[in-house]
């Protein structure tokens, strides 16, 4: 405050009528100073705590903001590190994926080959079985047809050769067999 007064005095210059660099009436200076001190003291007494409290709150908020910023920075740095690490691992991961894909493709290829081979074997066996069955069926049909033809031929031969004497001989043979069975 004294520096302020001195400054005012310097602005006014040392050209006051009393020849001092202070105003001419020292009492006015003293009372003014006193009033200023009183007003300042009242302000300090009444408004000081609120002002201090506001300043403390502001300081605390600023501190909180700084802490939050520090936390965010830490998190951002951690995220950055993680991303860096992930980026660093991406090549390895890509290589692993490619290797997995290659192994899967190889396994699939092997499996398909094995399945195709098994299918081919089964198809071949089924074909052989079908051919054998067809052969057996054809042979059976042929046998049945031959037997049918043979039976027809035999019937005709028998029918033409069964004269009355043969019929009587068959009947006598039958009667003898029935009698002999007793």
């Amino acid at each position: 405050m004294l520096s302020t007064i001195a400054l005012l005095a310097s602005e006014e210059g040392a050209h006051h009528p009393n020849g001092y660099w202070l105003p001419g009436d020292l009492k006015e200076v003293l009372w003014g100073t006193l009033a200023f001190v009183i007003v300042f003291g009242l302000l300090w007494w009444k408004a000081g705590p609120a002002l201090k409290k506001a300043m403390a709150g502001r300081t605390e908020r600023i501190g909180d903001h700084m802490s939050a910023a520090a936390t965010q920075r830490t998190e951002a740095e951690a995220e950055r590190d993680r991303i860096k690490a992930a980026l660093a691992d991406s090549d390895t991961e890509a290589a692993r994926i490619v290797e997995d894909a290659r192994q899967t493709a190889d396994a699939l290829h092997t499996e398909l080959e094995a399945r195709a081979e098994a299918d081919a074997v089964a198809l071949r066996e089924r074909g052989v079985a079908d051919i054998e069955a067809a052969q057996r069926q054809a042979l059976a049909n042929l046998t049945a047809e031959v037997s049918r033809l043979a039976l027809g031929a035999a019937e005709r031969v028998v029918h033409h050769n069964l004269d009355d004497a043969s019929q009587q001989a068959l009947i006598e043979q039958y009667i003898s067999q029935v009698g002999a069975a007793n």
Binding site: L151, E155, V158, Q167, V178
Partner: peptide, 25 residues
């Protein structure tokens, strides 16, 4: 065809040429 087939009750005494041919087939 030839021979005799006798049915007596539920019994059949088959001595026919027809049956012999069928058996042959």
């Amino acid at each position: 065809l030839g021979g005799v087939v006798t049915t007596i009750g539920d019994a059949v005494l088959d001595g026919s040429v027809r049956t012999r041919l069928t058996q042959l087939r």
